[in-house]
Amino acid sequence: MIRVSQLRKTFGATVAVDGISFEVAEGEVVGFLGPNGAGKSTTMRMLTTYLDPDAGEIEIAGVDVLERPIEARRRLGYLPESAPLYEELGVLETLRYAGRIRGLGGARLRDRVDAMVDACGLEKVVAKDVGELSKGYRQRVGLAQTLIHDPDFLILDEPTTGLDPNQIREIRALVRRIGETKTILLSTHILPEVQATCSRCLIIHDGKLVADDDPNRLVDATASATGQRFRLVIRGTTAAAARPALKRVPGVSDVEADDLPDGAVAAAVTGAGDALGEELFRRAVKEDWVLAELRPERASLEDVFRRLTHGDEEGDR
């Protein structure tokens, strides 16, 4: 269990983290989400004892991180942003050094290094130096050295930043596999990442926690707050005629409509009310349109994010 309460950190006049509290239960994979500069890395650096907070408490597996940092570090694996590694060391040397400095030795060290090479798919690069590796492999070596002592708690700062889509998928799969047995807090500013890997997400903005929930529930909440969105493809009319007709449907607040090259009309309708879909269907019948498509669009985490982090603009609408 990771327990953080009223954590605060300032750099000069800037408040980087402003009274954050949250908990991560054993076995959870929690996404830590926020724009760049929101305070994600600073929070993680405090959790991992790299930075001392100005105020607040951190507890990991019952260990007070501020009072017994070394004890806390034993239970943690931390992968800092962009997986910094020693360029001149070989892949195996890197893993052995990481193991040794964590007190592993002899057969146990050999076993762990082998296990990490296996788990992180490093077989092809064991003979190489870190400096020769691609970004994806570096990230894997970073993860491998983070996992070398088999920690129960993992703190991963933007583990997929700077990777190409294939590499992102691989790292995500790896994180998911690891997450089956461990407690993970991972930060990201890529939203699908959270939906793909996390059971819960914390959203941080300007040093404050603005949301703490299941990612899918957050999406639903956003949908009911900002309204539902439907996509339609209509035949037998033009965009110019469809626009005002759709606008008159009860509950509709916004309509976008365009003529498609094949003569159909593509429209996006935003509005409130549980029966919006039915109302749209009824309108189509009344106007004698052929409804080729009527599809509700789920609010994405992107929308959640926008709603939570730009509260002021949202209120203006």
Partner: peptide, 10 residues
Amino acid sequence: GTIETLLTRP
């Protein structure tokens, strides 16, 4: 940035 890894080991 390796200083972060180095100084967060026990």
